[in-house]
Design a protein around this nucleic acid. Structure first.
Lengths: 196, 196
DNA sequence: TCAAAGTCTTGCTGTAGAGCAAAACTTTCT
DNA sequence: AGAAAGTTTTGCTCTACAGCAAGACTTTGA
């Protein structure tokens, strides 16, 4: 395991400043709420059935959020890269067992914040309230876009869409997982890649 | 056009009280922000390309939210029935042109609140802030569930799912629209209904 | 109350994409 | 460096579903 990236706190501060600017002092107060941690490739941050206890801010690497359905098929709905928060919001909000897994795709460094701590900050610190609102809004918008864009599109058009919208996914994520994100089989994806 | 349902304000008050209880007096102050209006069957509250200017609280009837894609195919993502808020959140949040249409499916009575008014209340009245958070959370959760539940399901399983999750849709909404909600053709839907 | 418009059903045909299996290629580990 | 494990590609077959067209049934409105 490599050592924790030194710029981590700057990345987080930067994230804040884009949405809800925060003073140096206020930020210092926030720091203790976050814990740096490391997850090796393929390890799980959360498994289906567990309660989601934390949010994760990606410092370096990536993880995916996916679900295994009754027929044993994997469905990936999100890849979190650097400077993004990711978690199973539904489980956090409802306190219900997660229907999703969070799994590191690349070696992963995160800043972790506990659910209770986070929601407390949402209530008490207006910047964090704003951050949360922003996270919800974005989560919603992304998910909307995904429904509309992918529904009723041919497999080839989905691939082109991905290339356009999220080129990072194609360059950093193994094909098998990309296929499960697009909702097509790995065979079809492989064939389509040759067609451009 | 029938006359506006008399219990409308009670319905709205009731909605509030389940999420963010509010006093009689505070509620009276809120009332002027909402305007009762009526939309006949099939009329549009909003069309693709326009800016979404309002949120709608359904008093009686129903409307749907749908998108027409490049191949001219309709995709319905939501049916709003009594005591639900509905709008194109994305367009409201981003101030971007709507990619969705809102259309009355049954004769429709709503309480309408303007976007600017609403966001102002979100900032100034903590109960409305809570309502908004709740709307965002629910919108997100619903949309999540839809992705997971429908992706990779056979057409028959989708139908069973609908029967289970949203029986109202099957009983009140024309088949053609139901099909566009499930992402299957009207022909397939018709055939499957006979298979139970 | 009956014509006209809209909606639902059903037969038939065509096709996109799933899924298996085996080969080619890549990465990982000792 | 070479064996073992994992991933990607490709050929082949099979099926669920789309989409047209024509007929049955339902709703609407003058």
């Amino acid at each position: 395991m490599a050592k924790f990236p030194p710029g981590a706190w700057d990345q987080l501060r930067n994230y804040f400043s884009k949405i809800a600017p925060i003073s140096e002092g206020e930020f210092e107060d926030l720091k203790p709420s976050f814990t740096p941690s490391y997850f090796p490739r393929n390890s799980f941050l959360l498994r289906q059935g567990e309660l989601c206890q934390s949010m994760y801010f990606v410092v370096k690497g990536s993880f995916r959020i996916f679900h295994i359905n009754d027929s044993g098929q994997e469905l990936t709905r999100y890849f979190a890269f650097e400077n993004k928060f990711g978690t199973n919001l539904t489980s956090m909000i409802e306190g219900s067992p997660s229907v999703e897994n969070l799994q590191a795709v690349e070696p992963l460094f995160v800043l972790e914040i506990k659910k209770a701590t986070f929601f407390q900050l949402v209530e008490t610190i207006s910047q964090v309230n704003k951050i949360y609102r922003n996270i919800l809004q974005n989560a919603y918008i992304t998910s909307q876009r995904r429904i509309y864009d992918l529904q009723g599109m041919s497999a080839l058009d989905r691939l082109k869409w991905l290339l356009e919208q999220y080129p990072l996914i194609l360059s950093r994520i193994p094909s098998r997982l990309v296929a499960s994100y697009l909702g097509i089989s790995q065979y079809t994806l492989s064939r389509l890649k040759s067609e451009l």
